[in-house]
Nucleic acid binder design. Structure first.
Length: 352
DNA sequence: CACACGTGGAC
DNA sequence: TGTCCAAGTGT
C-alpha cells in the first residue's frame, strides 16, 4: 500500500523529537514558550552564517540586551561594535531599526508572517521562520537547507535560482498545519546534519525511503545551481596613523561596504578599485606589509601604510577619533581592518 | 532578475 | 590553494 504524503512531516517530526540539536536560542520543548525577541535575534544572526559563528555573538547580545526594548535603547556604535566580525553589517543596521520599531509599538513583535515581513531585515525566510517558531503559525519556511532537502526529496533539477518556485511549491505541500515551528527547525536540522551539501548521510535519514534523489542513486546532484561568477581582484591602501599610544579611526558611511563600522582611513579602494588614492596625511609613510582579504564578490589586497608621528592634531579636519591602542578590541573593527591592525601592531612593536 | 553585501570552516 | 558553502535581504 502506498503511504500517504503526510507521512513526510510525521516521520520528520518523530526524528526531530529524538535528534533535535540543543541550541541556545531554542526553547526547551514543553517547558517554556519561545521568546520572539530571541527567535528573531537568532534568525537574523543566522542569515548566511553558521551556527558556530553565531553562538558567541548571540550569548553576548542577549547578555547585554536581554529584551528588545533594551536593544532599541542601545547606542548605534555599541551595537555595530558588538556585531563586528560577524559580517553582513546591514543586518546590524536593520536589527537596530527593527528593534526600535518594535519598541515603539510597545515591545511586541507582530504575530503574523505579513506583519513580520514589513519589519526591516525580515525577508521572506525570516518572517516565515519567526512566525512559525515564535508564534506557532503555519508558514512555508524555505532556507538553503530546506531547498536542498526538498530538491532531493522530489528530485527537482531545475537550476537555482529559477528553480526556487517549484521548490517552494513542494515545501508548501509537505508543511503540516500544526507544529510549524518544529517542522521548520526539523527540516533545517536535517539539512545541517544529515542531508548535507556534500556527502549526505542517507543511512541516517528518516526520509530516505521516500527520497527521489536517493532512489536515483545520486543525492548529491541536487539542487542544481547556476555556475558562479569569477571573483575579481582589487587593491587598495589603508593608513595606520599612530600618536601617543592611540590610532586614528574613522567611521564608514552608513551604507555600502562595511557601512557604519569603525575603520582605518583608506584610499577609497572600494570605489576606485585601483589603490591609487591618497591618504589623510602627506606622510612620509612606512610600509607594514599587505593584508589579503576575500569578500563575497571580490578579493582585496590591502597595503598598509604606517605613520608614527607627532602631528596628531593636524588630523582635526577629518572626522574620526583617536582610539587608545590598549582598547583596540573594543573599537569593533570589521575583520579586514582587524587584520590590518594586527599587522601594524606587530610591525610597530618590532620597531619599539 | 542580478547584484552587493562578510566571514570562517570544510575539503 | 582554491572553491564552495552557511538559518538571506535590499535594491
Amino acid at each position: 500500500m502506498e503511504a500517504s504524503s503526510d507521512t513526510i512531516p510525521r516521520k520528520l517530526l518523530d526524528w526531530y523529537d529524538a535528534h533535535a540539536r540543543d541550541l541556545p536560542w531554542r526553547a526547551r520543548p514543553g517547558t517554556e514558550a519561545p521568546d520572539p525577541y530571541r527567535v528573531w535575534l537568532s534568525e537574523v544572526m543566522l542569515q548566511q552564517t553558521t551556527v558556530a559563528a553565531v553562538r558567541g555573538y548571540y550569548a553576548e547580545f542577549t547578555r547585554r540586551w536581554p529584551t528588545v526594548e533594551e536593544l532599541a535603547a542601545a547606542a548605534d556604535e555599541e551595537v555595530m561594535a558588538a556585531w563586528a566580525g560577524l559580517g553582513y553589517y546591514a543586518r546590524a543596521r536593520n536589527l537596530l531599526a527593527c528593534a526600535r520599531e518594535v519598541a515603539a509599538r510597545g515591545g511586541e513583535f507582530p504575530g503574523t508572517e505579513e506583519g513580520l515581513r514589513a519589519l526591516p531585515g525580515l525577508g521572506a525566510y525570516t518572517a516565515a521562520a519567526v512566525a512559525a517558531i515564535a508564534f506557532g503559525r503555519r508558514a512555508v519556511v524555505v532556507d538553503a537547507n530546506v531547498e536542498r532537502v526538498v530538491a532531493r526529496l522530489f528530485a527537482l533539477d531545475e537550476p537555482l535560482p529559477g528553480g526556487r518556485a517549484a521548490i517552494r511549491e513542494k515545501a508548501d505541500a509537505i508543511t503540516p498545519a500544526t507544529r510549524g515551528g518544529d517542522f521548520a527547525q526539523a527540516m533545517m536540522d536535517l539539512g545541517a546534519t544529515v542531508c548535507t551539501s556534500r556527502s549526505p548521510r542517507c543511512l541516517l535519514c528518516p526520509l530516505a525511503a521516500r527520497c527521489a534523489a536517493r532512489a536515483l542513486g545520486e543525492p548529491g546532484r541536487f539542487p542544481v545551481k547556476a555556475p558562479k561568477k569569477a571573483r575579481p581582484a582589487r587593491r587598495g591602501r589603508a593608513f595606520w596613523i599612530e600618536c601617543d599610544e592611540r590610532v586614528w579611526l574613522v567611521r564608514r558611511p552608513g551604507r555600502g561596504m562595511l557601512g557604519g563600522m569603525r575603520a582605518l582611513p583608506d584610499d577609497g579602494w572600494h570605489s576606485r578599485a585601483d589603490g591609487s588614492g591618497e591618504g589623510p596625511l602627506d606622510g612620509p609613510w612606512g610600509h607594514a606589509g599587505k593584508v589579503a582579504h576575500v569578500f563575497t564578490h571580490f578579493a582585496l589586497e590591502l597595503q598598509l601604510a604606517v605613520y608614527l608621528g607627532d602631528r596628531c592634531d593636524s588630523l582635526g579636519a577629518e572626522e574620526g577619533e583617536w582610539w587608545p591602542l590598549d582598547r583596540l578590541e573594543e573599537a569593533g573593527l570589521p575583520t579586514l581592518f582587524a587584520k590590518a591592525a594586527r599587522l601594524a601592531l606587530a610591525d610597530t612593536g618590532e620597531l619599539a
